[in-house]
Structures are given as C-alpha cells and as structure tokens.
Design a protein around this nucleic acid. Structure first.
Length: 286
DNA sequence: AGACATGTTGCTCA
DNA sequence: ATGAGCAACATGTC
C-alpha cells in the first residue's frame, strides 16, 4: 500500500488518536518477528512504557513518532524516536483500548482511549527505534523531499545522467533521489509527463527532464492533498478520494483504458516491477 | 494451482 | 569502483 502520501495518511491517523491521550500505558510486540530486526522489542518497550507522544512527521515512506518521559526519582528522562516503514503491506490503524492483538499486529501502543496498531502480514516493513536527544540517522539521511527546493530540475538531470542506461521507470523508484515514489506514483508521473517507462534515463530530452521533474512535484502534491487530506482533515479511507482522471484508478487490472486518450492501457514488467502506461501518449524514442 | 502484490536489500556480473 | 538486473524475503488474495 504505502508510498509517500499513504505514509502521511497513516501518520495522521495515529497522530489524531495519540493527541487525545498521549500516554502509553501498555505495549504489545511480536518480539521475534522480522520487523524488529533493527530495533530490539524489549528495549523499545522499556523506553516507551509510560512515555507520552509528542510529535510526528512523515518523509518519503518513513514515519517518525517522538515520545518523551520526564525524569522521576528512580529513572532519568528519556526521549524516544520510533520509526516505521510500512513495506508492502504495512498499515497503521486505531482501535478501541481493549483491542486484542491479531495475527499480524506486530506493535500495539495502548493509551487510555485507543490502541495504536501497526500490522503487516508480509513483514517487509521495518521498525526503527532510538533513544536520546539527537535525531537518528535513519531519519536524517532521507533524501531531500520532492517538494523541497533541494529537489531541483538540475539535480534530477544529473541523476538521470548517472543512471543513463536504466529504464526511467526503474530510476524513479530509487529512493536516494526520489524519496517516497513507489510503483503507482512512478507510473502516474510518467503517464502525465508522456514518457515511455522503458525509455533509458540518459536519452530523455532536456524538455522531457524538466517535465518529469515538474510532474514528480505535481503528483506528490496532489497525492498528499487527496490521500492524506489538507490541514487537519483526514479522509475516512485510503485512496477513496482519488479521481478517475488519474491513471491510478485504471492501472490495476487488465483491460483498463487511458483516461486522457480513452485508448487501451499496456502492462508489462519494466525495471523489475509491473508497469502500466498509455501507448497512445507514451512512446519510445531514440 | 499458480500468478501476482503500492518495497528493499544483497548478490552477481559487466 | 560503479551501475544494472534479479532473486529473496513472508503471506495473502484472486
């Protein structure tokens, strides 16, 4: 499920509930599962219990939740950084405080009013955890956001030149330069930019590079507003508000039609991932 | 039954 | 050394 905007959607969902009652009263973890490979569950529990939620943020496909616990007679103050990557099937949800852990509920933070649940059947997700006042590197080392000024057309052009022989679709999936772009966003961007997904990155014309850069930002902005909502608003469900004028609603099954040309869409594996494009408007060139 | 899945990583080979 | 391609990860659904 989760790319840039879905990560923000899920962050908001936990955030709204955690604001209601910030204090963590009880914690459930699936200690031995793969998700905790980089964050020992016992240490996480010890630091988070009786901590209170403070703030959160999403960047790329990574979500950060911060907690703090003031000093008491028997223990010093502690600041905690909880990072969640949703992998392919991860989800953050909110249930009533008596929620009973289900098979794939790997981390549950219980407050007086809610159960904050991280579930992930395929376990391609990841839980990161660090205590202390300095931000962890798994958070600070995320590439500059698509909507930041550091993500410039020049930076994109230089990156495309280094990856000159790879299909542009594969290049868009590289998180080191396109943080948060996943399979459907990459297809959406290429479709809007009218660039064939198999076009080698180094063969894009300067005008195409600029278009691609613009559409990266446009799709990021639209996806965030539509999927994660504006301001305090949080859509009731993931992806319900996506209009049929996007490729998104037509790309999944076979037999879809391009909402711009009304011609049939094509599907093939490009860059190791199932790719959907509109042959009528995305053509390979020398 | 078999194909397929909105992601990342670690390995091979050029 | 750097870049490209691909299997592997673990489970559910169509």
């Amino acid at each position: 499920m989760p790319e840039l905007a879905e990560a923000e959607f899920f962050r908001k969902r936990w955030h709204q509930a955690a604001l209601r009652s910030p204090r963590i009263l009880r914690i459930h973890t699936h200690d031995d599962k793969k998700l905790f490979r980089t964050a020992p569950a016992a240490a996480l529990r010890a630091a988070l219990i009786h901590s209170s939620y403070s703030t959160s943020a999403a960047a790329a496909k990574q979500i950060l939740f911060r907690f703090q616990r003031p000093a008491i007679a028997t223990a010093p103050a502690i600041e905690s950084w909880l990072g969640i990557h949703l992998g392919m099937t991860g989800e953050l949800s909110v249930f009533e405080p008596r929620h009973i852990p289900r098979k794939h509920d790997h981390l549950i933070l219980y407050t007086s009013t809610h159960a904050l649940v991280f579930s992930d059947p395929r376990m391609f997700g990841r839980i990161q955890f660090q205590s202390g006042s300095t931000a962890p590197t798994w958070w600070t080392q995320i590439a500059p956001a698509l909507l930041s000024t550091a993500f410039s057309d020049k930076v994109v052009a230089a990156f495309l030149n280094r990856r000159a022989r790879a299909p542009i679709k594969a290049v868009l999936l590289m998180q080191e330069r396109f943080p948060g772009i996943g399979n459907w966003m990459a297809d959406e961007i290429l479709w809007r930019a009218a660039i064939h997904p198999a076009q080698p990155a180094g063969t894009l014309q300067p005008a195409e590079v600029k278009k691609l850069w613009r559409e990266c930002r446009a799709v990021a902005r639209l996806a965030l507003n539509t999927i994660a909502g504006r301001g305090d608003d949080l859509p009731a469900d993931l992806n319900i508000a996506i209009p049929d004028t996007w490729l998104f609603n037509h790309r999944w099954g076979k037999g879809g039609h391009c909402p711009k040309t009304n011609k049939p869409l094509a599907r093939a594996e490009i860059g190791g991932r199932t790719t959907c494009w509109s042959p009528a408007r995305q053509k390979l060139h020398a």
